[in-house]
Design a protein around this nucleic acid. Structure first.
Length: 504
RNA sequence: GGUCCCAUCGUCUAGAGGUCAGGACGCCGGGCUCUCAAUCCGGUAACACGGGUUCGACUCCCGUUGGGACCGCCA
């Protein structure tokens, strides 16, 4: 029996996600409990979205929560490089192998043609993916287009009939009919691989024995198995974990629940409590204990105890667990040290001083005015959220559009936030003052305080967004239908679809 | 719409043919207490439905319903 080797493969396209920590924990526990290796691989094959700051963010967030790995971009290892963007030559030669043995083909379809194809299929209510337009191009025509330098992608040639059986450790045999599987793109026109190619090639080359990943990958597993087969390789064992869920049962998403690991840090949760809590999701230890260390978790870890229903991520229980860690695992001095590591340090509150000095009469005025920076959650008096002459019903949609606006912001700076607020005010045709009033109270819980945009910059994007969502709830929320309608109008804004105050 | 996965208290879960279906969070009530917490005690609350299999089904099989995921030159 070969050494157990598992990996997590996050992609550096945003704030590190609790789902990554969740998968990390279970992969780590599986590896450790079997004397195996745990690898961190960075899947940065999306050149338009990957950014190196996010990669650093992943390292930091995973370390913060207490996970370590045996091989990875930062620690090296015998199977490197561990950053897919540095392995592109490997994917190209492997794509060539597939081309050569007839398991893949060149496709010259333009994105436009594909979009039209999908539209047509939707209109005619035909299901399925790629229509196989380039699947059987004559050799000479392919040669010709290639010589001419036409852009192309390489697609997998999925057999037209037959079936593919996925063996999932937790779920047993899952059968897929091949005619329902389309010719997945393996190599993009920028010569970078898609996930499907890269993950199969890397998992094989890195000798991964068990792929423990989220259930959302189940439908693409047959494609991966087909690829292993096309290369003549043995696939690893697959273990698809249930998903982390929003309170409404949908897949955990940042619109409905905080998903950034950094949010939990900033909001004042303890990393060991968060990790512990994650270990309670879809899993229970044989002894049923609910509070445990990573070492304890590993010591009797049994992957077959994973239950299959998705698990709702419940902030209430996480708070309770964090409370236990605070009172059961600390002496006052220890706890104070953690406060210093958190936000009660020179690096943090001091940033408020330049804008606070004019507002202070005594030293004691600072902390009450800055309390919003150190609070996990804020309670709202809904009357305060309301600018004069505005009704309570008007403010929920405004909060929602602010949230939409902030979603697309990558640089969380005061100037950027100000631009976003201006744009939102323009959408509503409101004086900016009315919008800032709502946002001000949403962020600080009161109508007076330090300058809004700078304060939000210091508070951080994850915390700020969370305040927005809480204020939205306090204002009565929006409801499914209204939310959809508003989002549609928001997307179509700037095309003469701006709202007026009267419409709402 | 197509394919696939899933189904025990509101939430996280235990349960692997015979249990009063257990624990935890939350909620409610009570004790302790200068307040609030913490803590202790007690309570509320679940096997989605219908067929089988079986002496016996929460447990096994089938169907229905419900929920979810996926159908991108994103992972």
């Amino acid at each position: 029996m070969s050494t157990v080797k598992v990996r997590i493969a996050p992609s550096p396209t945003g704030s590190p996600h609790v789902g990554t920590a969740y998968m990390g924990l279970f992969n780590y526990a599986f590896a450790r409990s079997r004397n195996g290796k745990f690898i961190l691989r960075i899947e940065d094959t999306d050149q338009t979205r990957s950014r190196s700051e996010y990669e650093t963010g992943i390292f930091n967030a995973l370390h913060w929560i207490g996970l370590t790995w045996d091989e990875g971009p930062d620690v090296g290892g015998p199977n490197g490089p561990y950053r897919q963007s540095e392995r592109t030559e490997l994917y190209r030669t492997h794509a060539r192998m597939l081309l050569d043995n007839g398991s893949a083909y060149h496709c010259f379809c333009t994105p436009q043609r594909l979009a039209e194809m999908r539209e047509r299929m939707a209109a005619e209510k035909i299901s399925g993916g790629y229509d196989g337009h380039c699947r059987n191009l004559p050799e000479t025509e392919v040669r010709e287009k290639l010589d001419r330098g036409d852009p192309f992608v390489i697609r997998m040639k999925v057999p037209e009939s037959g079936e593919c059986v996925v063996h999932d450790r937790l779920r047993g045999e899952i059968r897929y009919q091949l005619d329902g599987i389309d010719d997945q793109i393996l190599l993009k026109s920028d010569r970078f691989p898609t996930y499907h190619l890269a993950n199969v090639v890397d998992d094989h080359l890195m000798q991964i024995t068990h792929v423990i990943r989220g259930e959302e990958w189940l439908p693409s597993t047959p494609k991966h198995i087909l690829l292993y087969r096309a290369f003549g390789w043995d696939p690893p064992e697959f273990i698809h974990m249930p998903l982390l869920l929003n309170p409404d049962g949908s897949k955990l998403s940042k619109r409905k629940n905080p998903t950034a690991i950094d949010y939990y840090r900033d909001a004042g949760y303890l990393p060991e409590a968060l990790l512990n809590y994650l270990g309670l999701m879809s899993y229970s230890r044989p002894n049923q204990e609910e509070k445990f260390t990573l070492e304890e978790f590993v010591s009797d870890f049994d992957i077959d105890r994973i239950s299959l229903g998705g698990a709702v991520f419940d902030l209430k229980k996480l708070k309770w667990l964090t409370g236990r860690y605070i009172r059961e695992n600390h002496l006052p001095d220890d706890l104070w040290n953690r406060y210093k590591q958190w936000r009660l340090n020179d690096g943090f509150l001091v940033r408020m001083l330049p804008m606070m000095m004019n507002r202070l009469q005594t030293l004691g005025d600072l902390i009450p005015a800055c309390a919003f920076l150190l609070a996990t959650d804020i309670e709202y008096e809904t009357e305060l959220l309301k600018p004069q002459n505005r009704s309570l019903e008007e403010i929920a949609p405004v909060l929602q559009t602010l949230a939409f606006q902030f979603e697309t912001r990558s640089e969380w700076t005061a100037a950027g936030i100000e631009r976003d607020v201006n744009e939102t005010a323009r959408f509503w045709n409101w004086p900016i003052r009315d919008v800032t009033r709502i946002l001000f109270v949403a962020v600080m819980g009161r109508e007076i305080g330090p300058p809004l945009f700078e304060s939000m910059e210091i508070l951080g994007s994850n915390m700020s967004r969370r305040r927005l969502m809480n204020a939205l709830d306090a204002a009565g929320g929006l409801g499914r239908k209204k939310l959809k309608a508003l989002e549609k109008r928001w997307i179509e804004r700037g095309r003469g679809a701006e709202a007026t105050a009267e419409e709402n």
